[in-house]
Amino acid sequence: MNGPQAHWLADGRRLHLNHGPIDLIVEAFGEPDERRAAYEQAVARFQTILIEVVEELPELRLPAFFLAPRDFAGPTARRMEAAVMPLAECFITPMAAVAGSVADEILGAMLAGRRLDRAYVNNGGDCALHLGSGRSMTVAIAGTGNGMADRVGIRAEDGVRGVATSGWRGRSFSLGIADAVTVLARTGAEADAAATLIANAVDLPGHPAIARVPARDLAPDSDLGEQLVTQSVGALSPDEVARALDKGLAVAEDFRRRGLIAASALFLAGEARISGSVTLAAPNKHAQEEFADA
């Protein structure tokens, strides 16, 4: 595996950081000197972040226990544990929040001592956001059947600083059948962990059209072990789609009532459920605005 890599994308505005499984798109908005310093700080922090997580990986792959947090050494690992602790009434490991936690950590490094109008770190669709007073950002979300055509507008006063998406079609394993679940929360780590569990809850256990295999058969070191992860979803009736989505919506509403998330959007087979205030904009409404993809 190559070491940490950093280069500018073709537009000259966005920085691409890559090291092993971590693949980040970073963009900052503000005065040129502030932006330049923020990018330098992001690159510097990126040099060791994967190594730090790997050093604690065996413990990070073990389930979290409600009200019994572990004392991890690295700041990213601590973010991961903190994000899953409020959700640990059911099975969850800190790995459910790894992408969002890495995004949060790099964004935190960018902001240290800097004055930026806006910034985002996109880690494979799980995003950490910075919005200065009065600022806003448009985030493109997947899962609606229109690719990246739908947008969610986030304002500084909304208190949302993390957006994450989970589902069986994504890059991580899922126990459920959601095409996608997008969550808006206070941090990228919290959004990541919550999206994982809501997506798991969108399900029809035992349905013959759903193919599942033990996670360990696909990845021997998976934190999910022998739990069955979804590999394909066949034809479902409208009633079945509605039933699966409503199961996920119940979990999303519980998380929202407890203050763990701000909002979420659940998608399956062309249908959707919304929890909280999520307004999907028309495909070309924000064509000229900068946005991050979640």
Rank of each mutant, 00 (worst) to 15 (best):
Q5G: 02
H7K: 11
R13Q: 15
P21A: 02
V26F: 03
E27C: 08
E31F: 00
D33H: 11
E34M: 05
A38S: 14
I49A: 10
I49T: 11
E52H: 01
V53L: 10
L57G: 03
L60K: 00
A68L: 09
G74V: 03
R78D: 06
R79M: 12
E81I: 01
E81H: 03
A88K: 03
E89I: 04
F91S: 12
T93I: 07
P94G: 07
V98T: 00
G100W: 01
D104K: 11
E105L: 01
L111D: 12
R114F: 04
D117L: 13
A119T: 08
A128N: 08
S136K: 13
A142Y: 14
A142I: 05
G143T: 02
N146H: 07
A149W: 00
R151C: 14
V152M: 01
A156C: 08
W168Y: 14
G170R: 01
A185E: 06
A191T: 02
A193S: 11
A195W: 04
A199R: 03
D203G: 04
G206D: 11
A209C: 09
L236V: 14
A242I: 13
A250V: 14
R256D: 10
R256I: 08
R257W: 08
R258H: 09
R258C: 12
G259E: 06
A265G: 07
E271D: 08
R273G: 04
P283L: 00
D293I: 11
D293M: 09
A294S: 14
